[in-house]
């Protein structure tokens, strides 16, 4: 299993995260953009204030910002997304909150 960046529940990052490895956000990321090649997972305790750009994005927490994925965006039950989504595949589960535009064109 390739290494993943894990931002724990009691960690706050104020700035950009970029790179190749996947990112798991259990804490807070604000004030910048997450642009990683592999996936981004925002867990139930995670909070992202800023844009997210990745291959696959899974949101079970709170994201305030635009999300762009080259593969899929999955908004899980309990997840909250306030921002636009641009992805070829989108899955919004029952119980999720979403406010924004969806663009699925390639």
């Amino acid at each position: 299993m390739a290494q993943e960046t894990i931002i724990g529940a009691q960690v706050t990052i104020e700035g950009d995260i970029s790179g190749t490895d996947a990112v798991q956000v259990h804490g807070t990321v604000r004030g910048g953009k997450i642009a990683v090649k592999e996936g981004v997972l925002v867990s139930a305790t995670g909070k992202v204030e800023g844009d997210v750009e990745s291959a696959a994005v899974e949101i079970a927490g709170h994201v305030q910002g635009n999300v762009a994925a080259s593969d899929k965006v999955e908004l899980k039950s309990g997840g909250k997304l306030f921002g636009d989504v641009k992805a070829p595949r989108i899955l919004i589960a029952d119980g999720a909150s979403f406010k924004g535009n969806i663009n699925m064109s390639a």
Binding site: Q3, A9, E14, S18, G19, G27
Partner: peptide, 28 residues
């Protein structure tokens, strides 16, 4: 959640401030 400490992995670059209340390992 405290089995695995927070980690900034090797291929990652963070431009900005990091504050934490738990152990942090930086590889990137």
């Amino acid at each position: 959640m405290s089995e695995v400490s927070s980690i900034i992995s090797a291929g990652q670059r963070v431009v900005g401030n990091v504050s934490a209340a738990e152990d942090l390992v930086v590889v990137g």
